[in-house]
Design a protein around this nucleic acid. Structure first.
Length: 773
DNA sequence: GTTGGCGTATTTTTT
DNA sequence: ATACGCCAAC
């Protein structure tokens, strides 16, 4: 900004001081990475080595030394949260002059670019962004049109295949040639129609947000050149997780100036399932033969033992860049291994350990993270934490913007700015019900198809559709009026007021008030919260509109909304934990078939990815790391007995202690490829655990809560429910148990919820009754 | 033709 | 618990 109007001498003096300040507090390697501002740079950085910090300081350094102006810098990150934090830190380092600097995820950055330039390839700036759910709807419509059995060929699966093709930049024609097997052939069959439907809806799916810019750059070299000149400095974080399209984009953007700086760790590549290509980072040096490569190998995060454990995990993998991690941190505690009887028992052991460390060692609840492989595992952990009133937050799973009631409102709003959005029309055209059933919708679609119109255009001409009864035409006409009326008010009313009026007149609010259940009340509150969110968004952003709100919101994940409110234990998948760190980390569910997931054990490359995931999880821990597994677990509706994970047989046992302080005893050969052993854990080593448990406690470093005299909670929650007790139900609210019948899975309670709702018979297995009072 | 109730299958990770 | 398909009643 103005500051750069100083004379050359004045500037260099001020710059020098600022630059020196930015370099202070970095180690020699980091400093070198920051100072290498000319030409391609790759920073290969282990976990906890301060790679994001290095990137941040490099950007600040560029600005402080006047090498680049903020608007000449773009940084692409993996999450919105990472971008936000990086931006804040750069601002703190250089003062306020960062306006015009682009920082965000690939997706959000290129969505923004498409908003400006998309008209050149036929997209209006109000394009809708389709999430997986919307895309699935489009696929389903395509399958139905072709009379393909959606039971056998699930829209989800088909979409995943199309998405993975798009990820690798394989177009419909090419895909048709390479499709193998029934499912792929069906995917190839609907792929062109899927693309056409999206185009007609003026919509982009997640993959398009990367592919369309490529198309734009290829068809309009002048546009590419404009951005190449604008962004003289390109930074990419988490480069190991870029896919083909992201790779192509980065090469194109870096094509002119070649000032590309990438940061990554091949050992932390965990998104291959999403098309991430580890080859991108492995081949950086051959892509840019004048690249400077800097290794950051010193770990500042974890204790020596944790690092040693992590090292022993990753060393099992064959393909990786040479790197040797080291730390000067203290040795720290042993990594603790805890075995549990069931997932409930596991959750309880974790919960007790957390409370114990909280009370005795003074850890804040913020210091804890419990990591697991699948979202479904959060349930039992939540139950245990809730029971003991330990505050927690769950990241992932169902986020605010994924709730049905929210998606309904968003669909209405999307229709206002982009009436061609067919997925949104289908979502809300008959919700709340207004007499436009399947048959009418089918006829609308057929008409659109025959006339080559979008769905909305067909609706506009509904009077011309003679297959429809007058009644149906009227119903559609009323819907059309509802949307058109509010679309015409886009310019005049404030976005939040308009949204409020629309959902009122659409009958959404009445629908939610129709039945007075707690569930509906919660939904109604959520909708109101969404309206407030719109108001807030408009207040915070300069050129905000419903259109920009919708596009921004489509790319939010709930990690991005999650503001750190209060002290809570964090529960999340291992994937979601990437880039984070916590003093105390639990990795739960270390069992064969779960972690590693069963399907991943076939393929060497997939097994290696699971192992990297374990590595990522372990290296999140700063001071204490707990590994847990259960001997049995409810999965797919039944209790299954579990063998502990092969990963536990591979790790360096010298840094691990069991709960009673023993060394970890391993069966190193158990999963060797040629052993062919299918022995169950029990057959193999029947007395292993009993021996351990019967042994007297030796010097135990981790103090266990069983010795603290606290109440023991037995491994059954449902026993608490008996005739006479008061319980709470998620839908019906509070009630009183009148009687009980049946046992085990069939156990049923008759509960009286007051005069309005009356008596309900509830299966304990499904209804989550919570005892109150 | 539309709506709502019932039975059945469902869980990998995500921008 | 939830989503979806199928079937019977309005």
């Amino acid at each position: 900004m103005r500051q750069f109007k100083l004379t050359r001498d004045e500037r260099s003096l001020a710059d020098e001081e600022a630059a020196q300040e930015i370099l202070d507090g970095l180690n020699p390697q980091q400093r070198e990475a920051v100072k290498t501002t000319d030409g391609p740079v790759m920073i290969i950085a282990g976990p906890g080595s301060g790679k994001t910090r290095t990137l941040t300081h490099r950007i600040a350094y560029l600005i402080a030394t006047g090498t680049a102006q903020p608007h000449e810098i773009i940084a692409l990150t993996f999450t919105n949260k990472a971008a936000r934090e990086m931006k804040e830190r750069v601002q703190a380092l250089v003062g306020e002059e960062t306006r015009g600097m682009w920082m965000g995820t690939f997706h959000s950055s290129f969505a923004r670019l498409l908003r400006r330039e998309g008209d050149k390839i036929g997209y209006s700036k109000d394009f809708s962004i389709y999430d997986t759910d919307d895309s699935k709807r489009i696929v389903r419509a395509q399958l139905n049109r072709r009379n393909i059995d959606t039971q056998r060929f699930k829209p989800r699966t088909i979409h995943r295949m199309i998405s993975s093709a798009k990820n690798q930049m394989i177009g419909p024609a090419e895909y048709e040639d390479m499709a193998r097997g029934d499912t792929q052939e069906k995917a190839a069959e609907v792929y062109p129609g899927y693309e056409k439907a999206l185009e007609q809806a003026n919509a982009m799916d997640f993959d398009d947000l990367l592919l369309k810019p490529i198309e734009l750059f290829e068809n309009h070299p002048d546009v590419l050149e404009k951005y190449q000149q604008r962004w003289r400095y390109l930074h990419i974080d988490e480069y190991q997780d870029t896919n083909r399209a992201q790779y192509v984009l980065s090469r194109k953007l870096a094509g002119g100036h070649r000032n590309i700086c990438v940061v990554g760790d091949d050992a932390q590549s965990i998104y291959a399932f999403r098309g991430a290509d580890i080859g991108n980072i492995l081949s950086f040096q051959s892509d840019y033969d004048d690249a400077t490569v800097i290794r950051l190998e010193r770990n500042y995060r974890s204790t020596e033992r944790i690092l040693q454990l992590a090292d022993s995990i990753i060393e099992q993998n064959e393909e990786q860049l040479e790197k040797s991690l080291w730390t000067e941190n203290e040795e720290g505690d042993y990594v603790a291994l805890m075995e549990a009887l069931s997932e409930k028992d596991e959750a309880q052991k974790i919960e007790r350990t957390i409370r114990d460390l909280h009370l005795r060692e003074g850890y804040s609840y913020n210091d804890f993270a419990v990591l697991y492989r699948t979202n479904a595992q959060s349930r039992s952990l939540e139950d245990a934490l809730r029971r003991e009133n330990v505050p927690y937050r769950v990241i992932g799973g169902m986020s605010f913007y994924e709730r049905k009631e929210i998606k309904d409102v968003l669909a209405y709003l999307r229709l206002l700015v982009n009436p061609n959005d067919a997925a949104s029309i289908r979502r809300v055209i008959n919700y709340p019900t207004r007499g436009i059933g399947d048959k009418t919708q089918e006829r609308l679609i057929r008409f659109a198809q025959e006339e080559g119109l979008s769905l909305w255009q067909a609706i506009e001409r509904v009077e011309d559709i003679d297959t429809l009864s007058t009644r149906a035409q009227n119903a559609v006409g009323k819907f059309r009026f509802l949307i058109a009326k509010h679309a015409s008010k886009l310019g005049e009313m404030s976005p939040d007021d308009l949204a409020q009026e629309l959902i009122q007149e659409a009958g959404l609010l009445d629908e939610l008030r129709k039945e007075h259940t707690q569930e509906n009340l919660r939904r109604w509150e959520n909708v109101q919260e969404l309206i407030s969110a719109i108001a807030e968004y408009v207040g915070e952003n300069e050129d905000a509109s419903i259109s920009t709100f919708l596009q921004d919101v489509a790319l939010l994940t709930d990690q991005d909304n999650e503001f750190d409110d209060g002290e809570r234990v964090t529960l999340m998948t291992l994937h979601a934990a990437k880039g984070l760190e916590f003093p105390v980390v639990f990795i739960a569910g270390l069992e064969e078939g779960l972690f590693p997931l069963s399907h991943a054990t076939e393929e060497q490359s997939e097994l290696e990815e699971e192992r990297r995931l374990f590595y990522v999880g372990a290296t999140r821990a700063e001071e204490r790391l707990y590994l847990t597994h259960a001997r049995s677990r409810y999965r797919y509706g039944e209790r299954q007995s579990c063998t502990r994970s092969r990963f536990l047989e591979e790790i360096d046992s010298s840094v691990v202690r069991t709960e009673v302080g023993d060394e970890l005893r391993q069966k190193k050969d158990r999963f060797k490829a040629d052993s062919g052993s299918t022995q169950s854990y029990d057959d193999m080593d029947p007395h292993y655990y009993r021996e351990n448990l019967s042994e007297k406690k030796k010097t135990v470093r981790q103090k266990k809560s069983s010795s603290s005299g606290r109440r023991v909670v037995y491994d059954e929650g449902q026993g608490e429910i008996a005739p006479g007790v008061r319980v709470e139900h998620s839908k019906f609210g509070e009630g009183k148990v009148l009687s009980m019948e049946g046992e085990g899975d069939k156990a049923t309670a008759v509960v009286f919820f007051g005069n309005e709702i009356g008596q309900k018979k509830l299966k304990l297995k499904y209804a989550q009754l919570r005892r109150v009072g």
